[in-house]
């Protein structure tokens, strides 16, 4: 791929991001909300104090002035202050990001590994008992609401059996620092991670299954078999990579949704990540926080979409030629 093509794709992604930034401003100005009145309800504020607070939240002046100020601040990664806590939005988002990356990242990787393997086996042995069982599992898990599954697992494994904590990220009386704390956090993460893994794997399995079925009819697999390769060699050396091509975009996009993917599950398990932060901000509504979160979520999808486009030519030599 030429440098010019790469530059073109990067510019395209930046353009999309710029559109999101502008759109974001108007989206959150549609809802009229006065945080000064909400936050300081019942207190007697002087007009001067009220004006000062309004200015702090960036709500003074005309809409046009607000827009330019918003653009200027956004470019400096300043997303304003939370209506709820009066803390800078960027700090709160940074504080919640690692937990979400750990939880959703782990479950996405697990779901992908298990789901893709299930799809390959099911598609390669289409119509057999293996296929029917695996496809059945995939459809059931894919259509299960993840918050419901989370509540179910929570009830059985945490409440009834007491094997896992019911929520949060760590035990307040547990070990502090070192390996002990890490294990405690992993113990807390187990159930939400299992929930998300089950909820995600069906989609990967079904997509991989249909890709493998499409590829299985190809003549080059007949030739590979005629060469004397074992069935598993035909599948792994010749069918797999070709079948992965159409799934690449989906996989990259699903990584883009890692940050925003677990709003309901994080809420069910009180997992202090971006999902729970989103849920709490929606209840406010804490508009600057939501604005910052939306921007981050959009940016993640755009970045991974770009990554998929840049990666694709390395997987498919036919695209490289263009």
């Amino acid at each position: 791929m030429t440098a010019r093509l790469v530059a073109g794709k990067v510019l395209g992604a930046l353009g999309t991001l710029a559109f999101v930034v502008v759109f974001n401003f108007f989206l959150f100005r549609v809802v009229e909300s006065n945080p000064v009145a909400t936050l300081y309800r019942g207190r007697n504020l002087t007009d001067a104090q009220r004006e000062e607070l309004t200015r702090q939240f960036g709500l003074d002046g005309s809409k046009l002035e607000q827009f330019w100020r918003y653009m200027e601040q956004t470019l400096q990664l300043n997303f304003g202050r939370s209506y709820a806590t009066n803390q800078p939005v960027i700090d709160e988002i940074w504080a919640a990001t690692p937990q979400t990356l750990a939880l959703v990242g782990t479950s996405t990787v697990l779901a992908m590994a298990i789901g893709l393997a299930m799809g390959v086996v099911a598609g390669w042995r289409r119509g057999t008992a293996h296929d029917r069982v695996l496809t059945g599992i995939s459809i059931v898990t894919w259509s299960t609401p993840e918050f419901w599954l989370g509540m179910l697992l929570l009830t059985v494994f945490a409440v009834d059996l007491g094997l896992f904590p019911t929520g949060g990220i760590s035990d307040p009386s547990g070990p502090d620092g070192g390996l002990g704390e890490l294990l405690d956090q992993a113990h807390h993460m187990a159930l939400p991670c299992l929930t998300l893994t089950i909820a995600y794997l069906g989609e990967y399995a079904l997509i991989m299954r249909s890709s493998i079925i499409d590829v299985a009819r190809e003549d080059y697999l007949t030739l590979a078999r005629a060469k004397g390769l074992r069935d598993a060699q035909v599948r792994d050396r010749h069918a797999l990579r070709n079948a992965l091509l159409p799934s690449t975009t989906l996989i990259a996009l699903s990584f883009g949704f890692v940050l925003s993917g677990a709003i309901t599950v994080e809420t069910v398990f009180s997992w202090p990540g971006l999902g729970l932060l989103t849920y709490e901000s929606l209840r406010g509504p804490d508009l600057p926080m939501l604005q910052g979160l939306f921007l981050l979520f959009s940016a993640a999808v755009i970045v991974f979409n770009l990554a998929a486009e840049l990666l694709y030519p390395y997987l498919d030599p036919r695209v490289r030629a263009r």
Binding site: E218, Y220, A224, N242, D316
Partner: peptide, 16 residues
């Protein structure tokens, strides 16, 4: 025994 397959693009693995 080997086969010379029909050469319409599809007999060769496109990514190898």
């Amino acid at each position: 025994m080997a086969i010379v397959f029909q050469g319409a693009l599809h007999s060769l693995n496109p990514v190898q």
